[in-house]
Amino acid sequence: RVGTEPDDTIYLCRVTPRTIYPKKGLTTNNSWELIVNTDEFKQAIQIEECEIPNGPCEFTDSFPNGYKSYCKQHYVTRNLVSIKDEGPLDPSPESFRIPSCCKCVLKKVN
């Protein structure tokens, strides 16, 4: 989802949507790799991050007793052309973990 729904739709978590051109990223294998992003070859990604990760959600004053709400960052996997830190400098696709959206979740606290 990009941007905010107009008018009547209000989300429980505030987010910061951005378009980024990452030069480095964390792969799904938990390693940092260089992502190809030059003037000629651009890889843009739209991301959405929680404005305050793990911060309280809004509009949640009447959830049941014993529940805490908070805004949780969610991720998706996306393929980007990247270069391995070691070995030959051949650009190849690799899957990266990308912040996709921010959801209000409930946690039982007692």
């Binding site: 990009v2 941007g3 107009p6 008018d7 949507p17 951005r18």
Partner: peptide, 15 residues
């Protein structure tokens, strides 16, 4: 500024 113009919704967001 980051602006999102959504003509179909007649909506502009300015962050």
């Amino acid at each position: 500024f980051r602006m999102s113009i959504q003509p179909s919704r007649s909506f502009v967001q300015i962050v």
